[in-house]
Design a protein around this nucleic acid. Structure first.
Lengths: 225, 225
DNA sequence: CCGTTAATCGTCATGTTGACGATAATAGCG
DNA sequence: CGCTATTATCGTCAACATGACGATTAACGG
């Protein structure tokens, strides 16, 4: 029943926050086309394999990370006829938001895999510039009305760390006091572990974990818009 | 470079509002598999054809409508291995929001194409139940923070008609006075044609057309949530 | 003990929301 | 033509949310 016999791949936009900047995991291509250029990690969907399973498998292969941490969602499908010079290849892009991995990128099957700062990135292989841009925009938008910012954090985090996520992803300064009020006030966004405090330089902060809410009410709106 | 030689199709979730209820365009399958069952319109992506072009082409073929009216966006891709008994078929679903077509469904290449009320629909072919549900949920969500409700309306419409869209899609009653205030107050949502009024039974209403905004600020939040 | 730093609580003017009263402008009808 | 039903549109008000920013608290490094 194959009519056009196309290839279907899965590509991953893996985002994390390192050193106060949004980073994406890229792989330097060792073979043509686009040899030597950075590309999103990805690969072919295996026969009999579900799309999301393929994404999860790639995630594990590229990061060595168990995909239970963080967040994974389908971003969109890209199928412009000439996007791959080798032939017709459709790619289903997935977006993952991950906490800064203490474990290095190990076990990645591609040569040079590395986290690169988003800022100013360009000239990726294929149409990965656009896929990346779409992923970043999706992440920015979703922080507004979902509790997904917690996906960038370790299981337990402080309000200030969560605020740092918003400030980094949105490239905006946020008033610490109002942010604290909104986040602790939003229904089910975070819940205090109560038990603990932590410190770094100033007054110790309470630790929180993500709450049960799937949607934020009310949403946190981006400043500029 | 074809590794797994899969088939890629485009399926359409065409939504419109008729008689105060949300309707979807379905086609009764004339051949197996799922012969006699309702299915979303769709078809194979042609070689050399862009995904969105394929969606637009199907839209035109199924509805005879020029896809400039209304709204079309990618909904998601479905590729569970056994979703099509004939083999591995990935389908890229598109969601379209259309005004109630005065023109009947003409020129559709499938036998029985018809608009069916969403309410209580089930047992569609393939995984179209889920695709439809995802499309409806997407439409519901997008009415909150985009001006897409206007895609269900003719080029010029009254605030009451727009309110009817929200009430139908959200299955909720909305206070006419507050709705009027919010919609006319939201930046770029609608703009008065000024020139005209229309009537049906009560006081004549002003006519509006959709404004330039792509996002609603502030959003219109669903009541229940 | 003191300054520095960061967390957290408060206050206040302003803006938004939901509930609902009041008016305005038509059509239909006797 | 006045009356009534119907719908559009404007207003009012209390509850709540928001942004700006002051004040207090609890650590740290000297």
């Amino acid at each position: 029943m194959t009519i056009n016999g196309s290839a279907v791949t899965v590509d991953l936009v893996l985002l994390t926050i390192r050193a106060g900047a949004l980073h994406v995991l890229l792989i330097r291509r060792g073979i043509p086309p686009f040899k030597g250029r950075w590309a999103l990690p990805g690969g072919f969907v295996l026969s009999g394999e579900d799309l999301e399973d393929a994404a999860r498998r790639e995630l594990r292969e590229e990061t060595g990370l168990d995909p239970t941490a963080g967040h994974l969602e389908q971003l969109g499908t890209y199928g412009t006829p000439d996007r791959d010079p080798r032939g017709r290849v459709f790619t289903v892009a997935y977006l993952a938001l991950l906490p800064d991995l203490p474990a290095p990128v190990a076990g990645s099957d591609a040569a040079g895999a590395d986290w690169l700062a988003i800022e100013g990135l360009e000239d990726l292989a294929f149409d990965h510039d656009r896929i990346l841009a779409d992923g970043v925009e999706r992440a920015r938008a979703k922080l507004e009305y979902t509790p997904l910012a917690t996906a960038f954090c370790p299981p337990e985090f402080t309000i200030a760390e969560l605020r740092g996520v918003y400030e980094t992803v949105w490239r905006a300064r946020i008033d610490a006091r109002n942010f604290h009020r909104k986040v602790t006030g939003a229904d089910g966004f975070v819940e205090a572990t109560g038990q603990s405090v932590t410190r770094e330089r100033g007054r110790p902060a309470q630790l929180f974990r993500r709450g049960p809410a799937a949607l934020l009410h009310p949403p946190l709106l981006r400043p500029g818009s």
